[in-house]
Simulated scan of single mutants.
Amino acid sequence: MHSSSVFNGVLKICLAVTFFVVFFNYTAADALSAGTEQLDINARAGILLDAETGQVYYAKDADKSRPPASLTKLMTAILAVENGKLDDVVTVTGRAASVSVGSTIGLNKGDRITLENLLKAALVTSANDSTVAIAEHIGGNHDSFVYQMNRKAVLLGAEDTRFANTNGYHDPQHYTTAYDLGLITRYALQNNFINELVSTRETVVRWVEPEKEREVRNTNRLLHEDEVDGIDGVKTGSTARAGNCLIASATRGDKRLIAVVLHAGNRYREAAKLLDYGFSEVHPVTIFPAGKEMAEIKVKGGVYETVPLTVANPVRVEIARDQQPNIKLDVLMHSEPAAPVREGQLLGHAVFTINGYRLIKVPLVAAREVPPASLFSRMIYWFSK
């Protein structure tokens, strides 16, 4: 338990550090790009993040609940590839065959088709009937599969997500956030088969019985045009309530970015704006120098009443210049230290965030040593060094 005096001391540290970081980054932004305007997108919610690290570069209402429409199908695909075999032959039930609203692949009761081809239909042409067939095959029944979808969302950290179906039909109990969709997408793209499908422009869906095939074209317009360099995914979604939604990804060099836009005025333009912004404006930046005093904390029984805190190494992150003034910092202390305190001793951690999302967590160390106050304790301390 922290005493009230310690709690108040830590609170003062947080306030002082936040002020310094904001000041530091305003100075950097002014020097590097005076007059830079903040990015804005014409969408109800959106986010831009790094596909490898998960670092958030931009967020707009990314924690607000929104209907995801067919972006739902990414989670359906995740469970399918993790719990089934691509060459499994699925027999289509009456429930799957009865799906007729929105995009469908034209499944009929009794059709036999492989799981691989059902996934092609779901991710490339966004077929709603195929996801029901997938669910019944993998989960035994639709509701059991939806339960698994919700459990998987929790495991992935998508805590503000709840699914009520496999394809994104509107339901009050079917919702997510732009941030959660970013998490789900990052995870999905680690699977080679899903990663390949979401970048596929055109393919052929083949039935086992009756023996037939159908050519399908990806619903993601960015894959068919040259609006964004390096575009390689991911998924479209549209309903009257959800509006036009898109998860888009692009790779340039060794960096891959994921953009999510929900209920966008023009989903392709807004996603392209986010991706281009990430590749052109995001750069490594030192947001706190090594050895610079960050704050100070009280010390029990020391020759000095306080000890200054610092970081042993420069704190560097990748961030756009116009976002630097939005950086905030919280200091997490284990407890009020007691003398002796050695220089470089770990005393806590500093957590840098932007728009509520973590940038980096770094150790905080003592910037100087603090010997004990009593003569006897100091003698023991010096002899033990």
Score class of each variant (00 low, 15 high):
residue 202 E to R: 14
residue 213 E to V: 00
residue 231 I to N: 04
residue 178 A to P: 11
residue 180 D to H: 05
residue 224 H to K: 11
residue 208 V to S: 00
residue 213 E to I: 00
residue 174 H to M: 03
residue 245 C to T: 07
residue 174 H to Y: 08
residue 195 N to K: 15
residue 195 N to G: 15
residue 201 R to P: 02
residue 241 R to W: 10
residue 195 N to W: 06
residue 181 L to M: 07
residue 209 E to L: 02
residue 228 V to K: 07
residue 229 D to G: 02
residue 223 L to H: 07
residue 242 A to V: 09
residue 231 I to V: 15
residue 212 K to N: 03
residue 185 T to Y: 10
residue 242 A to H: 08
residue 227 E to I: 06
residue 190 Q to Y: 05
residue 244 N to E: 14
residue 173 Q to W: 01
residue 233 G to D: 04
residue 196 E to C: 00
residue 193 F to L: 13
residue 205 V to H: 10
residue 197 L to N: 05
residue 222 L to H: 10
residue 210 P to C: 02
residue 196 E to F: 02
residue 211 E to V: 14
residue 249 S to D: 05
residue 236 T to G: 01
residue 219 T to V: 10
residue 182 G to L: 01
residue 172 P to F: 04
residue 223 L to P: 10
residue 226 D to C: 04
residue 233 G to R: 14
residue 178 A to I: 12
residue 201 R to V: 12
residue 168 G to K: 09
residue 221 R to S: 13
residue 201 R to E: 06
residue 203 T to G: 04
residue 185 T to N: 09
residue 182 G to W: 11
residue 192 N to D: 13
residue 167 N to E: 12
residue 244 N to D: 15
residue 207 W to F: 08
residue 242 A to M: 04
residue 246 L to F: 00
residue 175 Y to S: 04
residue 189 L to V: 13
residue 228 V to S: 11
residue 205 V to K: 09
residue 208 V to T: 01
residue 237 G to V: 10
residue 228 V to N: 06
residue 216 V to C: 03
residue 181 L to G: 01
residue 171 D to C: 05
residue 234 V to S: 13
residue 174 H to K: 05
residue 211 E to T: 09
residue 236 T to Q: 06
residue 235 K to S: 05
residue 205 V to L: 11
residue 228 V to Y: 02
residue 202 E to F: 02
residue 200 T to F: 11
residue 243 G to L: 10
residue 223 L to Y: 05
residue 241 R to P: 08
residue 236 T to K: 05
residue 237 G to Q: 10
residue 225 E to T: 15
residue 186 R to N: 03
residue 195 N to C: 15
residue 192 N to K: 14
residue 245 C to Y: 07
residue 176 T to F: 00
residue 249 S to H: 06
